[in-house]
């Protein structure tokens, strides 16, 4: 393994320093997720010039701008659609999509399932903080049952998505979940996701401390991030711990690690082979 020593990873080399401090709230989990992502990129030795980050709208979407790479901040829920075009047109680029729970599961849900189905070589990082933070804290498709948000003033009664199971069922060839608390482990997972030839869907359990945490008295930033620890279960726990649709998602233990992996043909390859065959025939 070409593990580079933790000592030599300098995140500043991958940041647009002039934009810092970044605009996220104190204690926001997205920062940790970004560190893990950039660390993975560094370990894989990906040239920043050939790295494309496509992000959607929301707190997660804004993170892309801070990365010193080719960054594309696109429309609500559409990063996977844009990324599909970009990656097909430019297979030489490493394309990472940063999206959120609302961006990818609500407004962009259709794009997600079809990206999973196509299996184009994109790594999709879904930062799940269970809330629409940017718009002021509305309920999202992953908000835990009974939790308060600005649009569930009496508690949430909608069931949540288990995004990883959704992605797997839709055909994603690599599915994983990890929490921001485990930065090095998350880094390893992202690295595996990028290395995987095909569509990788990675759910990152992140925390919105300022809005969601406060509204639900989930503790301050350190308490919130630490509380992830007691809920994580290794993937070897199998079906025992899988989340039922009609049960609250987050307070239940959630499985982490690589949750699904199946090697199947990468979409871009398929396209190019199809084209080559046609050109030969001409």
């Amino acid at each position: 393994m070409n593990e580079i020593s933790a000592d030599s990873f300098d995140i500043n080399e991958y940041l647009r320093l002039e934009l810092f401090p970044h605009f996220l709230c104190p204690g926001c989990g997205h920062g940790m997720a970004m560190r893990a992502m950039l660390w993975a990129v560094a370990e894989l030795g990906i040239d920043k010039d050939n790295l494309a980050i496509v992000s959607g709208i929301g707190c997660s979407g804004r993170m892309g701008a801070y990365v010193d790479a080719n960054t594309f901040h696109v429309t609500h829920g559409r990063p996977l659609a844009f990324a599909t075009g970009l990656k097909l047109a430019r297979p030489d680029l490493t394309v990472i999509v940063i999206t959120g729970d609302g961006d990818s599961l609500a407004i962009g849900g259709n794009h997600l399932i079809h990206a999973c189905r196509r299996n184009l070589d994109i790594t999709c990082l879904m930062l799940n903080n269970e809330i629409y933070g940017m718009t002021g804290g509305q309920v999202s498709p992953t908000t835990t049952l009974t939790r308060f948000t600005t649009t569930t003033p009496y508690g949430n009664y909608e069931p949540a998505f288990d995004a990883c199971r959704l992605a797997e069922a839709a055909g994603a060839s690599f599915v994983g979940r990890e929490a921001t608390l485990q930065v090095p482990t998350l880094k390893n997972l992202i690295r595996e996701g990028i290395e995987h030839k095909g569509f990788s869907f990675l759910e990152v359990i992140s925390d919105c401390t300022e809005i969601y945490g406060r509204k639900n008295a989930l503790g301050n930033s350190p308490e919130m991030v630490l509380s992830q620890k007691s809920k994580m279960r290794p993937e070897s726990y199998g079906g025992l711990m899988s989340n039922k649709v009609d049960q609250p998602f987050r307070p239940n233990p959630f499985q982490t690690g690589v949750l699904a992996r199946n090697e199947r043909q990468e979409y871009g390859e398929l396209c190019r082979r199809h084209i080559a065959a046609k050109q030969q025939a001409e």
């Binding site: 933790a6 000592d7 300098d10 500043n12 996220l24 204690g27 920062g31 090095p184 991030v225």
Partner: peptide, 17 residues
């Protein structure tokens, strides 16, 4: 141990060994 560096959401900590 680098835990502070890893978990700082704002990349404010850098540890040199």
């Amino acid at each position: 141990c680098r835990i502070c560096e890893w978990l700082c959401p704002d990349y404010a900590i850098k540890l040199h060994k």
